[in-house]
């Protein structure tokens, strides 16, 4: 296990480097002069424009730019934003907090809804509870997050006026209230998949021979279901939960946009629109790192849940 963690963390460095390099080079082939974009609509002399190019090393050949970029990266410096007068590191860390809160609360919300619902559906197969859960899942799986988000805004903000529709709040309870609807929208879309999956994983586990052994020992129905079946059903659930966590990081881009939340997602969207290369590159490295770490956690959980898996 320790070896798994160490080798994974070591391979993580070249992996992130490759991802970042690909993004770096791709961005250089996007048409348009970044120097002009940096100054925006201001009128400017060709001389000043050239100064900006020199300042941001945009006058150098792509490979030289790449060399400088790698050198900075090795020191943990992601560069400076073209448009905002700040280091990319600072900008990302500022925005990361609210996005992390959004991702984690959506994820937990999804698990809290879907796992009990999936278990109940499996136990009450082909009853109205199961059918309702199926319909709930179908609706969720077929409606995009921003659509669910808008419906939630219309219902809870405009109609009922219970919760704010826009922004990320200013800390504490206010943030909780602001993140409630976006988390619900994201959590709901994930919950649908996990509900179906939990249901089928539980049906599968409950049909196994060892369940009969557990019953024949005189264990309570609760122990049979929650201990013997669920522990086995967790293996596929963890796999999908890991994939979903990755998808969530992408999903927040849409939901931050819908709810006007200033997180990492909206930072990236804005940066792409104005060709703020350093931010796009930096954020990509961050997201790649999160993906890799989540994968590592999933693999560790596998071994914890299933003793047949040893690294």
């Amino acid at each position: 296990m320790a070896r798994l963690i160490i080798t994974r963390l070591l391979t993580m460095i070249p992996l992130m480097f490759i991802v970042a390099s690909v993004v770096f080079l791709m961005l250089r082939f996007v048409p348009g002069d970044p120097a002009r974009i940096i100054v925006g609509n201001q009128r400017i002399t060709e001389e000043n424009l050239q100064n900006i190019r020199v300042q941001y090393r945009l006058d150098k050949p792509v490979l030289v730019q790449y060399g400088y970029w790698v050198k900075d990266l090795a020191q943990g410096d992601l560069g400076r934003s073209f448009r905002q007068r700040a280091d990319v590191n600072t900008l990302i860390l500022e925005r990361l907090n609210v996005t992390a809160q959004l991702v984690i609360s959506s994820f937990l919300l999804s698990m809290i809804i879907s796992i009990p619902l999936g278990i109940i559906s499996a136990l009450r197969r082909n009853t109205w509870v199961d059918f309702s859960a199926t319909i709930f899942s179908l609706i969720g799986a077929s409606s995009p997050v921003y659509f669910t988000g808008i419906i939630l805004i219309l219902l809870f903000s405009y109609k009922l006026n219970w919760l704010p529709a826009l922004g990320e709040g200013d800390g504490g309870w206010d943030t909780v209230k602001h993140l409630a609807l976006p988390s619900l929208a994201l959590g709901f879309s994930l919950a649908c998949v996990t509900t179906r999956l939990t249901r089928s994983a539980m049906i599968e586990a409950l049909s196994q021979d060892y369940i009969e052994t557990a019953r024949s020992k005189g264990l309570s129905a609760r122990t049979v279901v929650m201990k013997h079946a669920f522990r086995n059903a967790m293996i596929p659930i963890v796999t999908v939960a890991g994939l979903q966590f990755g998808a969530l990081v992408v999903g927040t881009v849409l939901i931050e946009y819908t709810f006007g939340i200033g997180g990492l997602g909206s930072l990236i969207v804005q940066a792409v629109q104005v060709r703020d290369y350093p931010i796009v590159q930096g954020a990509t490295i961050f997201i790649a790192a999160i993906f890799i770490l989540v994968n590592l956690i999933v693999d560790i959980l596998y071994a914890v849940i299933d003793p047949r898996i040893r690294y």
């Binding site: 196994q208 060892y210 522990r231």
Partner: peptide, 8 residues
């Protein structure tokens, strides 16, 4: 198959 694989 009648022993649960995830418990000792």
């Amino acid at each position: 198959t009648f022993l649960n694989p995830v418990f000792t």
